[in-house]
Amino acid sequence: MSLLYNSDIHLGSSLSVIEILAVVILKFKRDEPYEDKDWLILSKGHAAPALYAILAEKGVISIDELWKIQDISSILQGHPEVFIPGVDMSTGSLGQGLSFGVGIAKGIKMSQGDGRVYVIMGDGEQDEGQVWEAATHAVSMELNNLISIIDVNGYQLDGTTEEIKPKHYLPKVWEDIGWNVLYCDGHDISSISYAISSSINSRKPTIIFAKTVRGKGLPSIENTKKQRVISNDAEE
């Protein structure tokens, strides 16, 4: 519990995306054979604690290690690094995961592989111009093995996504570019699973808008900009 108020982790963003990561990693992601494996890119790398928690649940890293996140003795960095077991891309700088995923998806297709590429982005991350460089390229190469999920928690660092730069038009833009646009409840396992399953036979790359709540499960930070739980709220 001390982790919740002592560490400088992005708790709100981790709690909004954790069910999405759980479904992708524990239910859909295939790790073998290597040439047909699926890839998971956490482009919103600041949600690393959620990724590590799910990788621990999967048994790839130890649960004890989770409590050492960001400690100088720990392998678990503030943002994902490929030297951490189970991590497919070093991230942390927003806007780069989709381009990397486009490269992997194309590489798989060129080798006639069967792997799928999951790229998880934030809604604030949609401000990055590079996302759109990648989005249009994915369509031109017909990468239907690429599935991107946007964690729509409604917040970015300095405020709500609507007040910083309106985002309500995003689904239409993705659709107009040529993506298969789907929606789900990002905290409902069956809703997330259904959306991902529906994407598998698409002829286009798929983007899933997963509606979430920032800080879900911790009332003192839920649906706020707050990242940390203060000690008085530790009972949560």
Binding site: S99, F100, V102, G103, H137
Partner: peptide, 23 residues
């Protein structure tokens, strides 16, 4: 051969993804 369009940032990360798959 790939022309990614006038998008240098995507160019670099796209190449990084290709390299990850052994290209």
């Amino acid at each position: 051969y790939f022309n990614v369009g006038i998008s240098e940032q995507h160019l670099i990360d796209f190449a990084a993804g290709l390299a990850t798959t052994g290209k």
